[in-house]
Nucleic acid binder design. Structure first.
Lengths: 184, 184
DNA sequence: TTGGCCATGTAACTTGTTACATGATTAA
DNA sequence: TTAATCATGTAACAAGTTACATGGCCAA
């Protein structure tokens, strides 16, 4: 129980892919899951300690520094169990849409800037996903995981493309509002 | 300072649209901003009390129950200021993608179920957005706000459509994985 | 021998949610 | 007169982030 079981999923899942140290785990979560998940430093170590106490992971190698954590049999079973639990969705929090909603107060020009910036960021993300997809496709380790990883990358691509299309639509719409205000 | 300024934006913004009671405010945030924002009950009242103390909102009508809050001059200035601050984005947390990433452990069949469910939900959301857009277009109060509100609804539509397209792509891809496993 | 990175943790703080407590008003 | 809804708040808890503290190892 303890820690949000979501954190346990991320930690157990990452270790199931490949045993590693706590430090490497933190980097893997940041770099590999980073596009759709995050765990802060202060969550990972306590979670790891808890998992070890429950016998879901065990240290391999020296007990001291540099100890590599691996998922036990029980740990694999627990992971499967956790993965099948209903997905917990957090409350939505989109700062961009919150600002646009109050666009009358913010002003059309500032709205344009925000949307333009969002579009640029989405384009950047899109390039990152393309690169990531190519990289995953090229690796031979994790070959059995790769098809699943591609699904998550594809989700990012679709989302970024949608953001770009929306931004373009927005910019046209904002022009219309602008015109109306001037001519009214 | 105090409360996260994000909560202040939501509260001040909603009251700027139209003065209302704390109770109505809670409902407005849930029902109107609900697709991209949320504030819990326990945040709204303290935030409101803080804003009143800073002179950014004031009570109109009886001091007791049923008092309507309205944004003051200073409050409008503060809102404009807050809206122009850089957008704070929370860390990403997508439970569906987290599960798919560990799809090898979860199993292809369970992945299919998750994706199918996600698709159904996206279709549902899409219908909600269509209805919402029609409703906003039909209202004559808030006519100057409507164009901005449509932008946020459009964002939801694009996002839902992207989710549906991605889900279809996923389902095909999952079939392929399935086939490979059986033939390999 | 110093700076950077690997490595492990803790403690304080912020944020946010849930449940509880209270009471007025209104419709059945 | 009873249940629902409007209305206002608080307190306890859960979750999550940041900054701090520590030390080994290795390369310049």
């Amino acid at each position: 129980m303890a820690r949000s079981s979501q954190t346990e999923v991320a930690v157990l899942g990452a270790l199931a892919t490949e045993p590693m140290t706590g430090y490497a785990l933190r980097e893997a979560i940041r770099d590999v899951l980073g596009h759709f998940w995050s765990e802060s430093f202060g969550q990972i170590y306590p979670a790891l300690a808890g998992l070890e106490q429950q016998g879901l992971v065990e240290r391999q190698g020296g007990d001291g520094r540099g100890a590599v954590y691996a998922v036990t049999e029980t740990g694999h079973a627990r992971l499967r169990e956790l993965l099948m639990q209903p997905i917990q969705t957090g409350p939505p929090r989109n700062g961009l849409l919150l600002r646009l909603f109050f666009g009358r107060t913010l002003g059309v020009a500032a709205c344009r800037d925000l949307v333009t910036q969002a579009k640029t960021e989405a384009q950047q993300r899109l390039r990152e996903y393309e690169a990531l997809a190519a990289q995953v496709a090229g690796e031979e380790r994790h070959a059995t995981d790769a098809p699943f990883w591609q699904l998550t990358i594809s989700a990012g691509r679709h989302s970024a493309q949608a953001a770009i299309a929306w931004a373009d639509e927005c910019l046209s719409a904002l022009d219309t509002i602008d015109t109306q205000e001037h001519t009214a």
